[in-house]
Amino acid sequence: MSELENKANDGPEDGAHHGTDNGPKDDKGLGLGVIFFMGAFLVCFLSGWLLFPKLLYSKKEQPFNFDHKLHAEETGDCETCHFFREDGTFSGIPGLQACMECHTDEPMGESEDEAVFVEEYVAKGKEVPWLIYAKQPDCVFFSHAAHTVAGGMDCKTCHGHIGESSSSRPYEENRITGYSRDIWGKNIWGIKKNSWDRMKMDDCAECHLEKMGHKGYCFQCHK
């Protein structure tokens, strides 16, 4: 039943409530409607901006803190840990074996992190289950060699200044997709300021278009 019909039917019996002189009441209702509108708008708008990101991502700490700056200073370069294997694959996160080329059963230094490393992992011969910030999903094929060796790209272009950090930030995981927050980027709108701020497919395509003159074909990455 339409509103007009409603009014027509209700009119004769319910005159006291609706009456003919209902102009001022309407205004009040409108005012209240505006207040409700504003209220709901503010609550939802602010929740979307502030609460939603907090709910969307869970935070996990790394097994222990890792000091990139210290390691870079000690080893003198990045390649000691992040190197290409003989078959051309890239040692993104070095295995325990690589760590043990410098570390021993004895803690080096007195930090708590070093103690955790030695007791939990070195002594037990267990790989450190690092949480990988830049981890791309399985459906993507990515070759470090093609980008850094053949393309001559700098690590920073994608990974930013992680090599200069002295502590590991918490790993944030998207509760819906299970992806690292770094893929979408810290900015919840997905707006980036630096090339390393986010790493979705469009970001790959953007750089490919700029450098190669073509966004690339699906099968180049999705094999």
């Binding site: 509108f37 709901a40 503010l42 609550v43 979307g48 990101p53 997905g190």
Partner: peptide
């Protein structure tokens, strides 16, 4: 509180969500 209030509430919530990043994300 009448129907218009609820209408306002609903529209407000919709507009709030629409202008927040929730939809896109």
């Amino acid at each position: 509180i009448d129907r218009r209030s609820f209408l306002g509430l609903g529209l407000g919530a919709a507009a709030g969500v629409a202008l927040s990043p929730v939809g896109v994300k």
